[in-house]
């Protein structure tokens, strides 16, 4: 059974001269529970917009997105927020950790808007990503790789069935990128979470068996 089903999805932005510029036009896309798909796409191909639509951060113009049985489209924004908090883990290229919070608190924040803060699980996740001794460090006190691992722990904090990763290793050197990706896939498997990763990095994409070219499914850029 798919954890993610997309059908007839359309999104367009209004350009400064007033014209509507289609960004996403995807007829059908799905991802099974526990599966891994890497989406290949260059700059401006709409890959971040696609992930934001799935996460409910953006609202679609048309079409339907269902995540783990919950419709993300055609529902109120507050419902989308709730679905996102409970069913989706999001790893950003820039990690998006809150600077005023420690590593542990960043992970706890990921839980607060979902099922609720669980300090024990947050600590065990940080331990799992190798940051047991850095839990009380603030992001600026951590290396880029360590920050990425905190972001990963936060994304998995609520046992999400789907993890969205937007260029998650974009800020890492190739060696650390490979290590980090390996850790992410490993932990997602342990947590039975499917991964939908977007990247334009060949090294990263080569690590996936299932790579989809966004240009092939997105008619807006096809």
């Amino acid at each position: 059974m798919p954890v993610l089903e997309v059908s007839g999805l359309k999104k367009a932005y209004r350009s400064p001269d007033g014209d509507l510029a289609p960004v996403i036009d995807i007829e059908r896309f799905s991802l099974d529970h526990g599966a891994e798909i890497a989406l290949r796409g260059g700059s401006g191909s709409g890959k971040t917009t696609f992930l934001n639509l799935i996460a409910g951060v953006l609202s679609a113009d048309e079409g339907e997105i269902v995540v783990d049985g919950h419709r993300v489209t055609g529902v109120a924004e507050s419902d989308r927020d709730g679905i996102r908090a409970r069913t989706i883990g999001y790893v950003f290229q820039t990690f998006n950790l809150l600077q005023g919070y420690t590593a542990l608190e960043n992970v706890l924040l990921g839980m607060m808007f979902g099922p609720g803060a669980d300090r024990e699980r947050a600590a065990s996740l940080l331990e799992r990503v190798g940051l047991a001794d850095r839990m009380h460090y603030h992001p600026r006190q951590l290396s880029v790789g360590q920050q990425q691992r905190v972001a990963l722990a936060r994304a998995l904090a609520n046992h999400p069935p789907l993890v969205l990763a937007d260029e998650p290793t974009g800020n890492l050197d190739p060696r650390r990128a490979t290590e980090s990706l390996g850790l992410m896939r490993e932990i997602c498997r342990e947590n039975d979470a499917a991964i939908l990763l977007v990247s334009h990095d060949r090294t990263i994409l080569d690590a996936f068996e299932n790579v989809v070219d966004l240009a092939e499914i997105n008619r807006a850029h096809g």
Binding site: E77, S78, N96, L98
Partner: peptide, 15 residues
């Protein structure tokens, strides 16, 4: 950005 991150983590506008 802080608010956007909180929202991305599932915080509602009202929160």
């Amino acid at each position: 950005r802080e608010f956007a991150i909180l929202r991305a983590l599932g915080a509602r506008r009202a929160t």
